[in-house]
C-alpha cells in the first residue's frame, strides 16, 4: 500500500494537488534549478497519475521535467 496514495485518497481534489505539489517541489531543483515553481505547477496541473508517477519513479522525474521545460519554452 502506497502511503502517499493512502494519504491522498480522502482529500479533496484541490487538497490532493496541493499535497502533490508540496512533495514534488523539493525534487525539481535537482534536475532543473530554475523554473521550479513553474515545473511543479505544470506537473501538478495534470491528472494525478502524472505527479504520482514522478514521485514513485524518480527516474521519470528528469524526463518529465525536461518535457515541462520544453513546453514552457515553446
Amino acid at each position: 500500500q502506497d502511503p502517499l496514495t493512502t494519504t491522498l485518497a480522502p482529500a479533496s481534489p484541490q487538497e490532493q494537488k496541493q499535497m502533490l505539489g508540496e512533495q514534488l517541489f523539493p525534487l525539481i531543483p535537482a534536475v532543473h534549478p530554475t523554473l521550479t515553481g513553474k515545473i511543479t505547477g505544470m506537473l501538478t496541473d495534470t491528472d494525478n497519475s502524472e505527479p504520482l508517477c514522478v514521485l514513485e519513479t524518480p527516474v521519470s522525474l528528469a524526463s518529465k521535467a525536461d518535457e515541462a521545460v520544453t513546453a514552457l519554452q515553446e
Partner: peptide
C-alpha cells in the same frame, strides 16, 4: 500573441492556484 499564464506557479505553503474550477 497570447499571454503565457499557464502553468500556475507552485509555491510550498501557498494554496495552489491551478484547477480552480474543480
Amino acid at each position: 500573441g497570447s499571454s503565457i499564464s499557464w502553468p500556475p506557479e507552485f509555491h510550498p505553503g501557498v494554496p495552489w492556484k491551478g484547477l480552480q474550477n474543480i
